[in-house]
Deep mutational scan, measured.
Amino acid sequence: SAVVMEEGSPGEVPVLVEPPGLEDVEAALGMDRRTDAYSRSSSVSSQEEKSLHAEELVGRGIPIERVVSSEGGRPSVDLSFQPSQPLSKSSSSPELQTLQDILGDPGDKADVGRLSPEVKARSQSGTLDGESAAWSASGEDSRGQPEGPLPSSSPRSPSGLRPRGYTISDSAPSRRGKRVERDALKSRATASNAEKVPGINPSFVFLQLYHSPFFGDESNKPILLPNESQSFERSVQLLDQIPSYDTHKIAVLYVGEGQSNSELAILSNEHGSYRYTEFLTGLGRLIELKDCQPDKVYLGGLDVCGEDGQFTYCWHDDIMQAVFHIATLMPTKDVDKHRCDKKRHLGNDFVSIVYNDSGEDFKLGTIKGQFNFVHVIVTPLDYECNLVSLQCRKDMEGLVDTSVAKIVSDRNLPFVARQMALHANMASQVHHSRSNPTDIYPSKWIARLRHIKRLRQRICEEAAYSNPSLPLVHPPSHSKAPAQTPAEPTPGYEVGQRKRLISSVEDFTEFV
């Protein structure tokens, strides 16, 4: 048969007729292969192709491409040299491709048809291009793949890379869960390890502090508590009631339409708007009261037996805890006409967050109470924005700035309102402590230090009264110190430094 060459192609190359033996071998191979691939376009007849790359030819070592076609129900084999250009295909004639002069020997084609199974398996396991790669995943090629499931790999992101949580363990979102698992493993320790309690022994800490320079003076030496005195035992138990972190309780009120001037209507609300609910979820963490331990979680007086509701929101960081007394989460009882059960919590909070959804101005004093010092007013606006402002009593104007209003988005509203309420509550605590000038409020841990110092002074006084020969370590507060001759004046800087060093040991009130 003659071949018409394309323009620009090399000279004529004689194409030899395939021997009958080659056709029989390739026909047997075509019957084993699956003929249901995917359909081509209507211009080209339905056909199945599979590209198999052999590394070497037997005796020649030339890479070839073998295409199996099922045109007219008769499979045909096409061998081509890759750099050459194939002729145009037609549905009426068999596929013809040019070969190099080196394939002119018909014996070479017979060798190609009689490829060993080793070469076929190696060509099938190679990388296939384009559409033949999808075909190689079918059941027909499963014989050339190794048996057994593939090893499982770690989760992959859409980009093909490992997620960040699997790369950096410290930033993994499941870090707290692993800590819980470690605690569970520790709890399952053997009885021999049960006595080993991690941490620092208080006796060891005391020993280090006792021999430090801070205890060089007799006034700073630790003293032993009497065991037989019940009054001192009660004082030590009272110390446990003062937490070592700051605590805040903040009221949250929802004002519906037409309720801006009605205290009873505001306290009777059992739910609010959708934006109000989203605002609550951002204030803190939802907790169930019956599962809380009052000595570990500050509840601000809420009952854990269901008297004040089942849930509330709280927030904490390293040095403070805040609980929100939310009116809509507290039960509304029919027998309580004046809502006294709610007001006994909300009316005693220094700061209230008022979500004013009424469309009218909310005035300070609508919720009557002796300790309502500051109101954080949240007014929802259009386009997911809110107006946040402050209202306070006249005696609080020096501590709280009420002249600045803020426009905040719904997303950042819980954070801004919480921070403003916490700052206002700190100012309210300082303002409330002014009624007792001898006990200015600095912080909870300073209050613990003052309680310890008062307890020490009482013990020293009782020891001096029981044994008059012992001198008083600290003179009583009601006694007057003996007159001392004025010492020589020293520079102001040295006096300030000495006073600062003494105050650092005794108390921190002056620095606050």
Rank of each mutant, 00 (worst) to 15 (best):
T379P: 00
K394R: 11
M426P: 00
H478P: 15
N220S: 15
V376G: 00
R411H: 10
R434Q: 13
P294N: 13
T490N: 11
T402A: 07
Q293E: 07
Q293A: 13
V400N: 03
E263V: 01
P414D: 00
K342V: 07
G359Q: 06
S433E: 09
A251M: 05
K342F: 06
T332N: 15
P489V: 13
F508I: 15
K221H: 13
D357W: 00
D382H: 05
H325L: 07
C460I: 13
Q484F: 08
N348S: 15
R454E: 15
A327G: 06
E278A: 08
D341E: 09
R434L: 14
L283H: 00
T485C: 12
H451K: 07
Q321K: 12
R275D: 00
E397G: 08
T277Y: 12
P442R: 07
T509G: 14
A487K: 11
G492P: 14
Q310N: 08
V378W: 00
T281C: 13
S260N: 09
P243A: 08
F508A: 15
G306R: 11
S229G: 11
A424E: 00
N412T: 06
E270S: 08
V430Y: 15
T485R: 10
D361M: 05
Q497Y: 09
H271C: 13
N356R: 00
S352R: 03
R450L: 07
F362D: 01
N412E: 03
W445K: 08
I440G: 06
G300E: 14
D395C: 12
I319H: 08
P437T: 11
G365H: 09
P294I: 14
L289M: 10
V495T: 14
K290E: 07
R418S: 11
F324H: 02
S260P: 04
S435Q: 14
S231M: 10
S231G: 12
R275G: 01
S477L: 09
H478W: 12
P226I: 13
D349E: 07
L225N: 10
F232K: 05
D240R: 05
N467F: 13
F350D: 02
Q370D: 14
M396T: 03
Q457F: 06
D349I: 08
E494N: 12
D401L: 03
F508Q: 15
D439K: 09
I446S: 10
I266L: 03
G347V: 15
F508P: 14
L346Q: 05
D317R: 01
G398S: 12
D410I: 00
K363V: 09
L501H: 12
Y313A: 12
A481C: 13
P331V: 05
K368C: 11
S262A: 06
A481F: 08
Q497F: 09
S479H: 11
P476Q: 14
F373L: 15
Q497E: 14
R498F: 10
G369C: 11
G398I: 09
W315E: 05
